[in-house]
Every structure is written in structure tokens, then in C-alpha cells.
């Protein structure tokens, strides 16, 4: 067991401060230490994307990030995207278009999609498929996930136009 480090994080807008072994993986910090269990563990090798969070503005697989590397970071998980009173447009779209089945990939999928739509607010289907290729779903065959994301993009563009 190695010496513990002093770590500071901001997770979903809340400041967190604790001592942790540097080898602790960020996904375990979130799930075990902070009880943020939306992000899941599917592969431990960065392939499946179930653990996807937004870390300092980038989509990151938190299963292969040491908490030491994340010191000082700002992190958003699925829990920070919407709440029961006001769901994120993507959360609504996934429900509406049957973009999920077992739900295990869903938090990572939606978290990644939220970043994708920030980077590219009006993606083509091809761009969605490419941009989501780091997130694996075993249930849906992706067709309705892609549909959900395109619908959310349209919805977000429409409300942005309305606001302008």
C-alpha cells in the first residue's frame, strides 16, 4: 500500500476532498468513495465506455484514470446532467425513442452523447455513430440510441433557436 495523497475534485458541482492511494481508479473513487454509482464498470480496459464521465471538458473512461491524475479536476457524471424534476434533453430522448434496455451502458452513453452534442450540435447520423463508437451497448443494436441522440440534437437546436 502506497502513501496516500491529498486529492481535491469537483464532482457535479460539489467540492470533494479526501486522502487516497494514488493507484485508486477514478471509477472506484466515484462509485465507492463518493457513492456516485451512475457510471459503471464494464471492462476495465477503456473499451466499453460504461464508466464514461466528463473530466475537465473531455469525455473520459474513468476506469483507466488514477485518481491522482484527476487531482484538481472538474468532473460531471450522469448524476450531474439532469434531475427528476428536469431531465436532460438526452435523458428524455432516450426514454422517448427506446434508446436503452438493461440500462447498464446508459449513464456512460448519455454522458458521452452530451459531450458529443456540445462539440457538434447538429451531427449527421454518421457523425453520431463515429462519435459514440467508444461506448458499447449489448442490448439495443444502437439504432435507437442513434435515433435518440439525433432527436435530442434537433430538440436542443430548436430550443436554442427559439431562445434567440
Amino acid at each position: 500500500m502506497s502513501k496516500k495523497m491529498h486529492i481535491q475534485l469537483t464532482v457535479n458541482g460539489e467540492a470533494q476532498e479526501f486522502l487516497a492511494e494514488p493507484r485508486e481508479l477514478l471509477i472506484h473513487t466515484l462509485r465507492e468513495r463518493l457513492n456516485i454509482t451512475g457510471p459503471h464498470i464494464g471492462c476495465e480496459t477503456s473499451h466499453c465506455g460504461a464508466c464514461t464521465v466528463t473530466l475537465n471538458g473531455k469525455s473520459v473512461k474513468s476506469c483507466t484514470v488514477f485518481v491522482a491524475q484527476a487531482d484538481g479536476a472538474e468532473i460531471t457524471t450522469i448524476e450531474g446532467l439532469g434531475n427528476p424534476d428536469k431531465l436532460h434533453v438526452l435523458q428524455e430522448a432516450f426514454k422517448e425513442h427506446h434508446g436503452l434496455q438493461c440500462g447498464f451502458c446508459t449513464p456512460g452513453m448519455i454522458t458521452r452523447a452530451s459531450k458529443l452534442l456540445e462539440e457538434n450540435p447538429s451531427p449527421t447520423e454518421e457523425e453520431v455513430r463515429f462519435g459514440m463508437a467508444g461506448n458499447i451497448c449489448r442490448c439495443t443494436g444502437y439504432q435507437n440510441i442513434v435515433k435518440s441522440i439525433l432527436a435530442a440534437a434537433a430538440e436542443m437546436s430548436a430550443s436554442k433557436e427559439a431562445a434567440e
Partner: peptide, 21 residues
């Protein structure tokens, strides 16, 4: 019919075995 399961899953509130503490 839209799925009743989806509210919890889309909000990261599913309760899978590794979530049990």
C-alpha cells in the same frame, strides 16, 4: 408503451449488484 424502467436508468439510478453496499 414507453418503458417505466427508463426513468431510473437514464438518471444513473439503476441498482445493479456492484451498487450494493
Amino acid at each position: 408503451r414507453k418503458r417505466v424502467e427508463d426513468a431510473r436508468f437514464t438518471q444513473g439510478k439503476g441498482n445493479y449488484v456492484d451498487d450494493i453496499k
